[in-house]
């Protein structure tokens, strides 16, 4: 009995350590963003700021219009994109689960083929050039993110679980297809639509692939891509400076960098309870089929 509880103690300890390892790096980033710049120069990054400062955040929202601009673009694209993606996915899923549609399996196959055989990056890029989703706001909104067959099948599988008798009885009462879709199927599918909405939303928010591939106009850069550029520019410069010991040029603000990273996590923290509730459930349904 004694040994039993000792092993339990070990497990608690291990999980606690792992939990701390997951959270600590985030806390470090947060703390650095609140640290006074000269303190960083003197002590390096540390968990406890010797001198607390909000200067980085002030700087970011005053002078750094590119950060504010990127943030607005990201928020806008995420909201509009998620909304449109949900509509497109939900509507198509209704068709695929409508037993009256004789060719629904052929339609499913049509979507499924694109999931297992992709032509790769280059044809996709050339299509984007040909269609014109390039170097404009549509380039951030449409390619890759607006529709995902995986999410379509997730919604379809859920709708397949809605009993057919509901449709039949509604038909007998004189309801048409549109009524059945909007008054019966979509209200009943709210949980799965919430899950898929979060999938789309997170994909939009975290995306910089469309920006790096299709956008050259700096005014359109979303926050994630700005962050990526900021890092690669500063980091190369800094490492080279450090090696050649000529670090007299104006030092880029370390705290500013970390503050930008922190505000990028912001919306995820705000939506966290919903993510926990719907996102995980959807993932489990999607990956453990049996």
């Amino acid at each position: 009995m004694k040994k039993f509880s000792f092993s339990k103690f070990l497990i608690y300890a291990f999980i606690s350590i792992y939990t701390i390892l997951c959270l600590a790096p985030m806390v470090l980033t947060l703390m650095v963003s609140f640290t006074d710049e000269s303190t960083i120069m003197k002590n390096g990054y540390s968990f406890i700021p010797e001198k607390f400062s909000l200067y980085a955040y002030k700087l970011m929202f005053q002078d750094g219009s590119s950060v504010v601009n990127g943030y607005i673009i990201s928020v806008g694209v995420t909201i509009v994109g998620t909304f449109l993606a949900l509509i497109i996915t939900g509507l198509a899923a209704y068709t695929l689960s409508n037993k009256n549609v004789k060719y629904r399996n052929a339609l499913s196959l049509y979507f499924f083929i694109t999931m297992i055989f992709s032509s790769g990056v280059v044809p996709w890029y050339l299509i984007c050039r040909a269609v014109g989703t390039r170097d404009n706001i549509l380039a951030l909104l449409v390619p890759n993110l607006l529709f995902n067959p995986f999410n379509l099948f997730l919604v379809r599988n859920f709708m397949d679980g809605i009993p057919d008798s509901l449709r039949e009885s509604a038909t007998i009462d004189g309801a048409n297809d549109m009524f059945i879709a909007f008054k019966i199927y979509f209200p009943l599918s709210v949980p799965v639509l919430a899950t898929v909405g979060l999938f789309y939303g997170l994909a939009y928010w975290n995306d910089w692939w469309n920006a790096i591939m299709l956008v050259d106009n700096e005014k359109l850069f979303p926050i994630q891509y700005l962050l990526l550029q900021l890092r690669s520019q500063i980091q190369m410069l800094r490492e080279l400076q450090f090696l050649s010991r000529t670090g007299t040029a104006t030092p880029p603000a370390e705290s500013l960098k970390m503050a930008t990273a922190i505000i990028t996590i912001g919306p995820i923290v705000i939506l966290y309870p919903y993510l926990q509730k719907y996102f995980v459930k959807g993932l489990i349904v999607g990956s453990v089929k049996g």
């Binding site: 985030m26 980033t29 975290n206 962050l227 990526l228 890092r231 970390m258 990028t264």
Partner: peptide, 11 residues
């Protein structure tokens, strides 16, 4: 939930 870009900052 966070992007690899943010992970690279943390790293």
């Amino acid at each position: 939930y966070i992007s690899w870009v943010v992970v690279s900052y943390i790293l």
